[in-house]
Simulated scan of single mutants.
Amino acid sequence: MNYTLHQLLVFKKVVETGSITKAAEQLHLTQPAVSIQLKNFQDQFDIPLTEVLGRKVQITEFGFEIAELAKNILNQVQEIDSKTMAFKGELIGRLKIAVVSTGKYVMPYFLADFMRLHKSIELNMDVTNKSKVVESLEKNEVDFALLSILPKDLNLEYLDLLDNELYLVGNASSKIGQKNIPEQVINEMPLIFREAGSGTRYAMERFIEGNKIKIQKKMELTSNEAVKQAVLAGLGYSIMPKIGIKNELHLKQLKIIPVKGLPITTKWKLVWLKGKKHMPLPKNYLDFLIKEKETISQSFFSDLI
């Protein structure tokens, strides 16, 4: 057999994505290039690795076993490279992090100094919804994830990075602003929710249920940015993370409406699967955060602390 590391990488990615097209996108290759590498890899085995049923690629049982071995080989190769560079005082490799959508206001600041210190490393940061972040963790596709609400059915370890405070927010022209506003006023507000499964949505629902508030008017939008734009436009009110509306508060385009029981405070957490054996790069990053997280918080988020 004479397969290459590149063929192992291509096959592993096809198995992970279940699609030649998606594998090509993630590897930044053309679809024909992936198909050729897959065929050249398959030609070295007498047992099928894949089957084409309809227009879908199906992985055989043998294919899954080979993919697992390919993954181990590629990890070992990365470790060899990492150890070599470590002896030279450098880190290399790709740091893979999945981030919930509101976390885009947080994670870059906890990465910037580390990336500047280690110019040879690559970053793959996937900003997506909570369900996809949790799925990436479950499949062990990422080194870390950034969440504010931990999933109940995953055994995780985590490092607290920053407080996440959620307030009731309206646009600047809102007439509601007195302290301790009556509960009936909240009931009459058109409230704007994030989509089901969002950490912000979960915190918002717990507050509403805990205070026995009955919502008369309700809207649902699928991103924090969409909710913010809707509130700016005067479509309604929402309970939102302060970190995502700092600029709008500063410009007096939005305002926090004082309500008893708010803010809701959660924690932004860097999480990983319990028992995960980190490669040198993610291990170094975790060590860096443990040492520097307080300094980063004070430098960039002092107005939130």
Score class of each variant (00 low, 15 high):
18 G>K: 08
20 I>R: 12
21 T>M: 04
22 K>S: 12
23 A>E: 07
23 A>Y: 08
24 A>G: 06
25 E>D: 12
30 T>G: 14
31 Q>A: 08
35 S>E: 09
36 I>R: 13
37 Q>S: 12
38 L>I: 11
39 K>W: 04
41 F>P: 04
46 D>G: 13
48 P>L: 07
49 L>Y: 00
50 T>G: 02
51 E>V: 10
52 V>T: 11
54 G>K: 08
54 G>F: 06
62 F>L: 00
63 G>V: 01
67 A>T: 03
68 E>G: 01
70 A>N: 06
71 K>H: 11
72 N>T: 11
73 I>E: 07
74 L>T: 04
75 N>W: 09
78 Q>F: 02
79 E>I: 15
82 S>G: 15
85 M>Y: 15
85 M>I: 04
86 A>R: 09
89 G>N: 05
90 E>H: 12
91 L>H: 03
92 I>E: 10
94 R>M: 12
100 V>W: 04
101 S>N: 14
101 S>H: 08
105 Y>N: 09
108 P>N: 07
108 P>K: 06
108 P>Q: 08
112 A>M: 11
113 D>C: 01
113 D>P: 00
116 R>W: 07
117 L>W: 01
118 H>V: 07
118 H>W: 11
121 I>N: 04
123 L>G: 02
123 L>N: 03
124 N>E: 13
124 N>S: 13
127 V>T: 09
127 V>S: 02
127 V>I: 15
127 V>R: 01
